[in-house]
């Protein structure tokens, strides 16, 4: 998994775009593209190879005979199941917190929105390790909130909860940024119409605002889920690597290369599985968004 938000393309026109804009893009698509300097093709191809070759190189190393056994070994299954459960939990957290945040962000005055957007984007740019450290200093046994929680008898670090928190921390920007873009594109004209038809704020949100940005919302949710499942750095520092409790797939793969837990074969099989699953997610998402673009 990459931390580059543009990996799956920008949120794109999630809502209805103004007519002139769509007419313009149609016109550009119809004309032949302007030729580029030929020399640029060399670094461009190298760039593509740099992304593709390492991933392709994974596949010949897989022992396909033992592949089914490798991904169904108890250690692998445990990591897989933990990744899925924590990933889904983090996705729900991102939705519950991120959707309202994106809504307010899209309505904020431009100056304030600028500042808020930078804050929200920060976890996306930061090395995840730094995020994990920050979480540890806040929720650790000696951390500001950690001390308070210890008194109540709650310990966060090195629990499954910590995994979910770390994943939410790194994945939230994907949802918020993607959804906010869709909300800004959709604008508020339909909401005004809905209000003059007698719809209250909750009705407008439920029946107009959210359905209009549904493609952007789904895209953001899937990206956030994918990012949560791939989370490693923050989890490693804040949640640790305990099989069955905090050892997610990326942790299991890492551990296998240090000669513990799952075998290297399993690690390789899991890695290939992650690549394939990521690819499928991106393809489905792309297809779905094209279909839903009204």
């Amino acid at each position: 998994m990459t931390t580059d938000p543009s990996a799956a393309g920008p949120p794109g026109p999630a809502g209805p775009t103004p007519a002139p804009a769509s007419a313009r893009s149609r016109g550009e698509r119809g004309a032949a593209p302007r030729p580029l300097p030929v020399l640029l093709a060399v670094p461009a191809v190298l760039g593509l190879v740099a992304v593709l070759l390492p991933l392709v190189a994974l596949f010949p190393r897989v022992d396909w005979a033992t592949f089914p056994a490798a991904i169904t070994s108890p250690a692998a299954l445990s990591a897989l199941s933990l990744s899925l459960r924590t990933g889904l939990a983090a996705m729900v957290c991102c939705l519950v917190l991120g959707v309202p945040l994106a809504l307010y962000l899209s309505r904020a005055p431009s100056r304030l929105a600028e500042v808020l957007r930078i804050i929200v984007t920060l976890p996306l740019v930061l090395p995840p390790l730094v995020g994990g450290m920050a979480l540890l200093y806040l929720f650790g046994v000696n951390g500001y909130l950690g001390q308070v929680l210890t008194v109540v008898g709650i310990t966060v670090p090195f629990t499954t909860l910590a995994v979910v928190m770390a994943q939410t921390f790194v994945a939230m920007p994907f949802l918020v940024i993607s959804l906010e873009g869709a909300l800004r594109t959709a604008g508020t004209r339909y909401e005004y119409v809905a209000a003059t038809l007698g719809a209250g704020r909750w009705t407008v949100l439920r029946r107009i605002t959210l359905p209009l940005v549904m493609p952007g919302l789904i895209a953001g949710t899937v990206l956030a889920f994918a990012r949560a499942v791939g989370e490693f750095g923050a989890t490693a520092l804040f949640a640790g690597n305990q099989p069955g409790v905090t050892q997610t797939m990326p942790m299991a793969i890492y551990t296998a290369f240090n000669g513990a837990g799952v075998t290297r074969d399993s690690a390789l099989a899991l890695a290939v599985l992650l690549v394939v699953v990521s690819l499928v997610i991106l393809l489905v998402l792309r297809d779905w968004r094209r279909r839903e673009a009204w």
């Binding site: 005004y192 119409v193 809905a194 209000a195 003059t196 038809l197 007698g198 719809a199 209250g200 704020r201 407008v204």
Partner: peptide, 8 residues
């Protein structure tokens, strides 16, 4: 607007 009974 939603409580005015005024359509647009």
């Amino acid at each position: 607007p939603e409580h005015r009974g005024v359509g647009l």
